[in-house]
Design a protein around this nucleic acid. Sequence first.
DNA 1: CGAAAGCGAAAAAGCATATCTTTATGCAAG
DNA 2: CTTGCATAAAGATATGCTTTTTCGCTTTCG
Lengths: 241, 241
Amino acid sequence: MVDNPPAGLHGSVVDRLGMLITSGAVGAGEVLRIEQLEDRFGVSRSVVREAIRVLESMGMVTSRRRVGITVAERVRWNLFDPQIIGWRLDGAGRDEQLRSLGELRRGLEPVAAALAARRATPAQCGALTGAVMEMAVHGRSGDLESYLTADVLFHRTLLEASGNEMMAALGGVVAAVLAGRTHHHLMPAHPEPAAIRWHAEVAQAVQAGDADAAERAMRDIVDEATRAMLDAGDETWNDET
Amino acid sequence: MVDNPPAGLHGSVVDRLGMLITSGAVGAGEVLRIEQLEDRFGVSRSVVREAIRVLESMGMVTSRRRVGITVAERVRWNLFDPQIIGWRLDGAGRDEQLRSLGELRRGLEPVAAALAARRATPAQCGALTGAVMEMAVHGRSGDLESYLTADVLFHRTLLEASGNEMMAALGGVVAAVLAGRTHHHLMPAHPEPAAIRWHAEVAQAVQAGDADAAERAMRDIVDEATRAMLDAGDETWNDET
DNA sequence: CGAAAGCGAAAAAGCATATCTTTATGCAAG
DNA sequence: CTTGCATAAAGATATGCTTTTTCGCTTTCG
């Protein structure tokens, strides 16, 4: 998605085991043993333990002496961990994940826009309007890939401009959502013209320092996005990765 | 804060080193070496490596051959990791962290309330109104600790009732924020009566399935909360942990 | 004569393995 | 029902080998 190469042997184990767990192939309550993992993945004990440690810090497993490594139920997971989001996004639970993220965006991005209206630097305002222009161009020409790039840039910039570190930290997953949306054909062939207009409104409101207008326009954007996604989702039902 | 004992030697190293990094005592770009950490913390190589792996998965450090372990700049961190939030919450950066979380809440909780209005189970509705009653009782009597407990319960329940896993996952940090607010005396001695009223409105709107009303009332709550916190923050300036 | 390219050595993390320690659990005996 | 012991599994340490990466030196070509 964005930084794929899971560098190192241990990273590869984390990746594979993490996928197995998120996919449900190994379910909550199940108990694994180090030795078993050793030969399942063909690595040494230390590597397994390192992998377990990071899974543990993600809340996906717990490790206890004399009993083994038990995979935890989902409510214990750090669902905001980018890696977990990634796993769920291209595998089982993608729908659920997209829904969750969509609802999150509905709350966060309008607030981010309002904050940006008060805090954005001139450079960020420029980047915003630049991104909108890109979107307009490629939206008209139907070049969805370039449109996506511009769209991602827009939202990333806006989240950064919010001056809120945590919102900025969500830039990556918002990008993943947008990418997932177009790559899984949950988007119309030609982007809604209204969407582009609303993006422009946000950019303008931010530049003008009009927090309310920015918030409202942004709310329009994400409302439309979730609506469109639901519509498309009904038709393009089974569409495996 | 909630699950403190950092079980295991490696966990303790994660905790100590993580604190050092979040506090800025060891700054971004600085490069550590395994051997050095070994005797700094008096543990063996594998333990250090396991700790590094965890920190690495949090985005706080990167490890490269022939160069060492370089601590990453803050924008690379997974700021949603509960452990990082914890470190920042009781240490340097507490103000920044509280501000960020406050702004997040302002976006999320109203949406969560709206969703809850459509999805809450009867049991959850009951828990909500129960929590409100608790709040009313202890708010009047001035028992801030019990009030806090009820408040936390309310918000946790509401986030869960939203039916959105990710929002529910934020229950812990919202609890941490509320706790931090009262324990650091960023709250009036007697809770705002209006706050309790708004909580009641939320509970009622959720029960009635009125998403708009729930959203509005919740917005009132968090707006008041941030306002109050800013006010108190101006007076109670330096108030170390 | 200078710069670029290639080569080699060393430094640091990555990985594997062996061994010992600790703790929790289950069973058996009192 | 309690006590205690045997054992299984993870926790921790120590050590050696491998791999990658950088740096410095040398060589060669412009």
